[in-house]
Design a protein around this nucleic acid. Structure first.
Lengths: 196, 196, 196, 196
DNA sequence: CATGAATGAGGGTTCATTCAT
DNA sequence: CATGAATGAACCCTCATTCAT
């Protein structure tokens, strides 16, 4: 959970900026936005407090940037997972989605905490565009679930959105707790009795 | 999720103290421990900042008290749920546990956030006895799951602890999001294909 | 120029607040708004920096309060001076106005600097009502001058407003420089050849 | 009052240096020495903050340079005015001095504010030689006044220094307020009843 | 010459805490 | 019991300054 970086996924940019973002994500994940001190973030990034202001105009902007990084990386991974073979069966695609989500959690690490944890709802509201992105993310998952229900893979009846929320709740809990993706995916599949 | 009180469950005590605890739980749930200002807590409780110190010796103690209230109320509810008829089948007891957990979340509201959210891990470590209580809580759930696996109600194979973590993750996500307990319990039962 | 107080003129109020205002007026008069440090102001008022925030919500508000005090005290003194016997000749009233203005400068001291100095124009714009008050102040002076011109006491011809600006410019320069009011009034009267 | 330059009066030199000085004079005139940020000065001069240090070793030196520019330009103008026909009558020379002073204010603009305003007394003390130059400036004015008093042009009796301070106070107020020199000079002459 | 980047000292502000009333 | 007032530490932020490029 320490020093996670979205480097590879986000392309190369200003290196210092990336170090600051990673440090900020870690601090925020651990202590919340209010408890994340610029001093601690700067130290973790290898510079002094005042220097942060050369890269970000304020703590608020830094926090927003962390959220945006997290969202961007999340969506990118989801795209990769969802763009998978459309000819796959709903069950296969559901499995792929679960695995992709768990892997994303593991790779995003601290960013995932900031993006997903309901404790940061207040934060989320302050970043323009965040809600739209998350809505899109959830919409795709609901489609995945609905397809699996139509197919008989998942029990028909329950609202796909509710099913999705429960499913993602379970995945997030395991992922944020640091469980290995592959193993967790298997257990989930077993519980849902997905055809192997 | 607003202004929740554990009054009934915790018995009557000092009324002002209870108002302060409720206000603190709400602030902490929304802004984290660092972001919960004594000023905001005092205002929500109907007094001035300095007056808090008549009821609690420090912010740390106040926060600890909130956690302890949450834990006490949680365990009390769990006891009620688990103390259910031992002659019931594992499936029935699992269902009862799920419903009880969801009801507890709904009733505990802000306290539940503070007790459950992994973001408050740092806090949890500072409250003596908290880990023991939670361990006991999780042990009982693991037993419930194991019994259901032995019984064929849940797929055998996966580690009961992992199953439990996924299950509680799903329940907590729904509960903290404000979903109605009864409805959520049904969806969960359907997904797990518990016998009705 | 040091530690001036408008105490008597403004009525009794919170004593600490007054001490802070006086200290702030002195600091601002000497170093400008930007150069007036809250540390220096607090020290001169006999408390610590943070304590200022119990009495004023921000440095901006403190500065505005200083301006308002200065304006209030100025107008009060002007009223007294202008309310003088209406049966007096224009020359007598002009003399009285000059003396009153010089005395006000001496008594207001640091507040006068803040209220009058054109360097604080930026400040003035931020205090609502300031401009209206000053306009009224200047209007009365223009009337005084016009009456003296009609009367032959002052040369007719020049715009009363321009005459007033020159006159007040001279008075302010002498007053802010700390010249004794009585003596300065005599020299001004001599230069303008006012009948003794 | 905006973007004034002493270019013509001071001869040609480094162009960038002149732009910086003009920008600094404007900033200082408007916000005081403490409120004049190097960032704002640099921007107005068309370069970045750090680049200022190629032209001036520190903010203090830059401010001193502004003052020196202002003084140099002032004295130069005064010399021109005073060096006028010695055979002129005191009244004529007084008139010429008044006009020259007003013209200098108009031309020096922001520099005049910095040089004249009593609020910058603290600054003045830090520039070696400033006081001597000003003393000389004031001495010449006092002579001018004394000659006019001996001559009967101005009322005898008052201390020439006091008369001079009042006169310059009036001129400076009008000049810094942006009044046109010629017109102001006429009004002043009328008030003092100088022979036309 | 000029700049991007970093720094440290200091400034304004918040906040948990104390205490006399 | 409660509050108004004060405090000091820590915080976020600004700014003059330096320096490698």
């Amino acid at each position: 959970m320490a020093g996670a970086s979205t480097e590879r996924a986000l392309g190369k940019g200003d290196l210092t900026r990336r170090r600051i973002l990673d440090a900020a994500a870690a601090e925020i994940a651990r202590h919340g936005p209010a408890g994340a001190g610029l001093g601690a973030i700067a130290e973790a990034a290898g510079l002094r407090t005042g220097s942060l202001y050369f890269h970000f105009p304020s703590k608020q902007h830094l926090i927003s940037a962390v959220l945006e990084e997290g969202i961007r990386a999340s969506l990118q991974r989801l795209d990769a997972a969802m763009a998978a073979p459309q000819r796959a069966t709903p069950a296969e695609r559901l499995r792929a989605g679960i695995t992709a989500h768990l892997r994303a959690l593991a790779e995003l690490s601290d960013y995932a905490v900031v993006v997903l944890a309901p404790q940061f709802a207040a934060l989320h509201r302050e970043v323009p565009g965040f809600r739209a992105l998350r809505r899109e993310y959830l919409r795709r998952w609901a489609e995945l679930v609905a397809a699996a229900q139509d197919d008989g893979t998942l029990p028909a009846g329950p609202d796909p959105a509710e099913v999705r929320d429960l499913l993602l709740g379970a995945l997030n809990a395991a992922g944020l707790a640091g469980q290995p993706p592959a193993r967790t995916a298997e257990v989930v599949a077993a519980l849902l009795r997905l055809p192997s």
